[in-house]
Design a protein around this nucleic acid. Structure first.
Lengths: 344, 344
DNA sequence: ATTAGCACTCACGATAATCGAGTGCTAACA
DNA sequence: TGTTAGCACTCGATTATCGTGAGTGCTAAT
């Protein structure tokens, strides 16, 4: 769908205006604001056209118009130009990250905080999954009764604890033996493609030990398969202030979504196309509860491989320009930061 | 303050009525509901007295009365009798817990869920702190650059991971050595009273190793000191439905509180007196944001020692009877369950 | 001490009146 | 032919008015 230059301009101004005021925009106010020397009457004609084309709607017959989802989509695809963040803000963000050079969890919290503050929307960050990494160490610790704790550590310092109830009691000596066996075979393999075939190659194990290893490994696999990213969210109440969310039912849907880790994780990790910034507007979201929200997400990488995702949830009249800029910059910053944190 | 039997009865009925309807209660409706053979006029006189005594207020001159905080306090202290939960519900809860015999995290999640479902309010559960337990195993894993991960495991299967950046690189051999040293001295000591004096007793360590241990231990202490309980909350949106929370500002305060782990943890762990069930009504709460809410909390124990806390946040017109009953039973159930989970 | 009776209060809901920012349409204009 | 001034019209939002009813306090009778 192509619009002529004037329609495009008018649509842009309407969207910009509506994004910042949440009020339907009429022809008169518009002609004042965008001083293109066009009269209200002309604008009215153009607006009527834009309405026919599906870009605008009137909440009621005699009010101004508001943009449709289609309009936002058009705006995002064809009109908006994502600018670089201002230098001052960039250095500000950068400095902020420097305070979190040691721990992953803190970095993620900080990211969420920065995101929500810079955008005034709700921010969500997915920490890297342990399965993305190389196994550095596995430890079996014997617990009371017939339970053991298996700890998997990556080179980068991420750890996953797995509680296992076994068919028999395991004392410290046996635990040590198991630890050694597991380490000798799993060390330096990628956690996501651990295989259990190696066991059959082991000769010097007793039947008991072999049996235990066979009992343990499925738990490891299962745990790694189910391994969910840690989720850090911030600014949930930011959205409470926007007039379109004075309806408590909408707020409720939002809160429910943000509380549901699985849902949130799914939302953050659905890509569209090859873009760096993913934008989902209103009902473009797979999740029914999100039809009144827009979500912009991005990912961060290490060695070209996706480590995690982060994004912002806001109203459909979201400030797409700004949020895109912010996400772009945070993405770079996070890539840099993560590689400092985890590499060499 | 003592009230005569009739006043007490009237106050009770008013409170019960208001708790279930959230509507100011008037003399006429009241005289129908509590068939004590007293006329509305008499009730009016009594109500006027109760108002003078500070137990009731009128939202406006010609409306019914609603209970004050003082009334709820009186009700909780002097009127209400906490009943045992119905048998059916008890066995229902008990059966539910049986599905979570293996993992602590799941148990806590389940508890929060059950609490919020049984009460229709917001439930919060604090998992046991690792520092409550005995150290079963400490492991140092060398990471990239000059970082190591220290893992502390308790007999019960709780683990705490501590990332440490050291002054020098530590290879796997050295990490193993450190692990052995730490284990030999810290194993089976209580995590909360770990001391670092033992190091000076060690003879066979190289200068480098001693130095590293000295570098590591403060991190351990700090981490254990800061060790926060994991928090599991559920049913945050339950409160959204109550008419007194149609005001979005109140909702906002609630959400902010529940998102702030530190605040929540403080709230759950303030005791009053020696009671098993702690009740804070409205502005009795230390936290300003909670002045429109009531909170009922309790704790669970192992070997007579407090392991964690749990509770319910609701409106000041909370159903104190029911919530108290539920908390009482959950407390028992949790004690039982935890001891099964953690003890031999 | 209790209660029936009565005049009074006041939030709430419905109805009506006003206002104003917005519209579409028509005719005049460049 | 595209643009604009003019005008009548629409309709949500705001305000005003009024009746209703559940509530009150007070007084006098029981």
């Amino acid at each position: 769908m192509e619009l002529n230059a004037r329609k495009k301009k008018i649509l842009e101004v309407i969207i910009r205006d509506y994004i910042s005021t949440a009020e339907p925009v009429g022809s008169r106010t518009l002609s004042k604001r965008c001083n293109l020397g066009i009269s209200p009457a002309t604008i009215r004609n153009e607006m009527a056209d834009l309405e026919d084309l599906g870009f605008l709607v009137q909440p009621h017959t005699s009010s101004g118009r508001i943009p449709t989802q289609q309009a936002y989509r058009y705006y995002v695809d064809e009109i908006m130009e994502v600018k670089k963040l201002e230098k001052i803000i960039r250095t500000d963000i950068h400095r902020g990250f420097l305070n979190y050079t040691s721990e992953m969890g803190n970095t993620m919290d900080h990211t969420a905080k920065v995101l929500s503050q810079l955008t005034n929307y709700t921010a969500v960050v997915l920490a890297p999954r342990v399965t993305n990494f190389n196994c550095k160490h596995i430890q079996i610790v014997s617990l009371i009764k017939n339970r053991v704790l298996m700890i998997v550590v990556t080179q980068e310092g991420m750890a996953k604890n797995i509680e296992i109830t076994l068919g028999q009691q395991v004392d410290s000596m046996l635990a040590l033996k198991l630890t050694n066996v597991l380490n000798s075979f799993l060390k330096n393999t990628f956690l996501r493609d651990m295989s259990s075939e190696f066991i059959d190659q082991i000769q010097e194990l007793t039947a008991e030990e072999t049996h235990l290893i066979h009992e343990i490994l499925p738990h490891l696999k299962k745990a790694l398969l189910e391994d969910a990213s840690e989720i850090h969210s911030m600014g949930l109440t930011n959205l409470f202030n926007y007039p379109e969310f004075s309806d408590i039912e909408k707020i409720k849907r939002l809160v429910n979504i943000v509380q549901e880790k699985q849902v949130l994780s799914d939302i953050l990790t659905t890509k569209d196309g090859n873009r760096v910034i993913h934008i989902k507007i209103g009902s473009e979201n797979d999740n029914e509860s999100l039809k009144d929200f827009s979500i912009i997400t991005s990912t961060y990488e290490l060695d070209g491989e996706t480590m995690g995702a982060f994004g912002v949830i806001g109203p459909t009249r979201m400030n797409y320009d700004n949020v895109s800029s912010v996400l772009n910059y945070i993405r770079n910053e996070l890539n840099l930061h993560i590689s400092n944190l985890l590499m060499k």
